[in-house]
Amino acid sequence: MKPILDVSELSTYFYTESGVVEALDGVSFDVRPGEPVGVVGESGCGKTVTGKSILRILDKNGSIVAGKIFYKGINLVDLPDLQMRKIRGKEISMIFQDPMTSLNPIFKVEDQMIEVIALHRKCKKDEAKQIAIDSLELVGIPEAEKRIIDYPHQFSGGMRQRILIARALALRPSLLIADEPTTALDVTIQAQVLEIIKEMQQRLGLAMMLITHNLGVVAEITKRVHIFYGGRVVESGATEDIFLDPKHPYTRALFDSIPSLEKDKTRLETIPGTVPRLINPPKGCRFHPRCKYATEVCSRVRPPEISFGKERRVACHHFEELDLHVDEELFVKQATVKEEV
């Protein structure tokens, strides 16, 4: 299937007082129609910048310096501002991480939703309001008709995130970019919101780019996943393949460093050091200073992205020599846990 979003060799830099931050450095990935895709990485790896670059809502000191973003065959990078406006919110919507700060506290929910709808559809206020109410009902806000005139502070965190989802989906976009939609929520509320996102994605046939650091959320919702590290994509592939058979040392290390409900271990595998700062990033492979398999070539040459197997891609000099397969013992254990559950 032809991808709905095709990002190729995207580089986004930020110009700051202390130097140029190479937030994205040649990032390529795609999202297909109706497909939930995960973008995974730690803070500062460029996940959010990718989302913002696609919608061209970067902060003033940031700009796309190279690359192309094709959405339904149109290159968004050199689209005039006026046409870009017609895409934001109608074709591509974004949900942000913090539901507490993404709604304006001094306007009613009604006003904030109608604003978006009226901007794209030439319709009366009443019609726009009806669309807003329908959308709120869709995401499970009880008594939407009454509550739409409330202010954001009258809603709980989970409800606010629902309002943001409702606003993002009001105009039935084809692509939804969800930036850490459940990170600020408690687990039981997170479960509610995830259920809604999953249901909406399936019911509306949305293509979705789910940006998150939570591997549990990724495993649950996405079909394919792109792993980011230091402003580059290090590995892509089907979610199941990547979780069971990671090829990049970073992906494996990331999986090992999360405490899991299934594993019984007293020590976690750690990745030494910290996430690199992207004003003067490491030469060659950006993971090499923290990688236990790194050799001389890793510190000199940027590893090419090599495609293999079923839609897998990995950027590592040594991936063919390494066996990073998740061990079988854990498989068995997890399988039994599955039965118990």
Binding site: M159, A191, Q192, G216, Q334
Partner: peptide, 24 residues
């Protein structure tokens, strides 16, 4: 419910989740 609400980092585990209604 708390245990069942945690998303597990394993794509093969499909759980029947107990989703709590409402907020705390």
């Amino acid at each position: 419910s708390l245990l069942s609400a945690i998303p597990r980092p394993d794509p093969r585990i499909k759980m029947d989740r107990i989703i709590l209604e409402g907020d705390v």
